[in-house]
Amino acid sequence: MEAFEPTIIAFVCNWCTYTAADLAGTARMVQSPRLRLVRMMCTGMVDPKYVIKALLSGADGVLISGCHPGDCHYINGNYKARRRVKLLNEILTGFGFDERRLKLTWVGASEGNEFAATVNRMVEDIRALGPSEAAAVQAL
């Protein structure tokens, strides 16, 4: 049997973390290829549905990453994202999802190294956790 390799969906904001991801790439930093990036205009527009859909559709983890507090291009989208992640964590952990599967981080546009480190750390964590608790469910 092949070793488990996690699939992680990442929703990253255009202004900070996506730019950092771009920087990490152009600087040829070593990153796990297990992450699928979805570029959003702001973490404040990451609808809880996106996270739920990802986890039900086979993602083993979801990363949401945006600007540091105070740096949001839209003033306060990241604060709203934080409340939504808090809400989602309360809901999902009640049904046995490990809370480490949903992660919110702040990675600024210049922090390419921090982005690569975040990706590698999360892939390690989820690899250790194993496949999503939803993997066995045939109902979406």
């Binding site: 549905k49 039900l56 809400l87």
Partner: peptide
């Protein structure tokens, strides 16, 4: 399982 989106619907409604 069909109809689909059953868990999705209820989890979204909870959110």
């Amino acid at each position: 399982r069909m109809p689909t989106d059953t868990l999705f619907f209820h989890l979204t409604r909870m959110a």
